[in-house]
Design a protein around this nucleic acid. Structure first.
Lengths: 146, 146
DNA sequence: TTTAATTCCTACCATTTTGATAGGGAATAT
DNA sequence: ATATTCCCTATCAAAATGGTAGGAATTAAA
């Protein structure tokens, strides 16, 4: 099955928890793990990636924890998934044409490029704010291109 | 990176080769492997899956080989990918809600369900015939739902 | 009826990825 | 000081990935 890894899935849930607490100071990773019923020690591997990509910031010591780096309205699911899963694309040739010499004519590549575009368009148009407001479908109507 | 496996990618290329020879008798797997520059012995693992899903038929012995089970116009990329990768969905909870008790309210699941729908809509509307005719983009306009 | 061509089946395997657990170090608010 | 919290590195079992290998079964054609 063509499935996202736990990095992408758990990471999205981390970001959702942080988005719900946005503006109210740091949130403990322990708390996130408890709310989402996920292993704390494993989340400790995932959240540094989000930090590296400037999606969250951390505060150490007592009263510390994690917060979103910016407003939930300015963080798309695409940013989250690309941070955690790397460049998302059905095949590597879509993003890196040089991996295959047939890239200009390959009919398969053309399909994967179209799929890739659809996925990115979709993920780009859903923000953490949409997620909180449960406004995911509507948000997709913003940038329809015909 | 969130990528299709070689099953899905090589399998699509197998089907493309067969589509190009549709109506002209069986094609050797050896020939497909050569045309696509893929390891024959590995394709021997992939093609039985396509056969099981009634996408190709085989003829044994000399003058044998493989042919498409039906017209390229009646085979979508979705059929091919689902045969080879299993149910495609960003998360298993999209197809199998019972894997998570939060399924009715989960905001993450809602996102993956939307992405899933977009991917399937896209793959459903590209056929092997479109691929041969290099008509992939146009074929996507058929079933637009606003 | 032999032979050669071809698919079909099973076993095996090396490497990488996945999904963690564990232990302790560093920073800091109180 | 101390407790709290993030941070870093190591380790690991299990599964998935991407093959290779060898030969059995089927069958068209010589």
């Amino acid at each position: 099955m063509w499935q996202l890894s736990t990095k992408g899935r758990y990471g999205t849930r981390i970001m959702y928890q942080l988005a719900m607490k946005y503006g109210n100071g740091p949130m403990l990773l322990k708390e996130i793990a408890a709310n989402e019923n996920l292993p704390l020690k494993y989340l400790e591997h995932i959240i540094p990636i989000l930090k590296k990509h400037k999606l969250v910031i951390s505060t150490r010591g007592p009263q510390g924890g994690y917060q979103l780096f910016k407003d939930p309205k300015d963080i798309s699911i695409k940013m989250i998934i690309e941070a955690l899963e790397g460049d998302i694309a059905p095949t590597s040739c879509v993003e890196s044409p040089q991996v295959c010499e047939k890239n200009t004519t390959c009919k398969s590549r053309k399909i994967w490029a179209i799929v890739d575009e659809k996925i990115k368009e979709t993920l780009k148009n859903i923000t953490l704010h949409d997620m909180i407001e449960d406004n995911m479908e509507n948000s997709l109507c913003k940038n329809i291109v015909l």
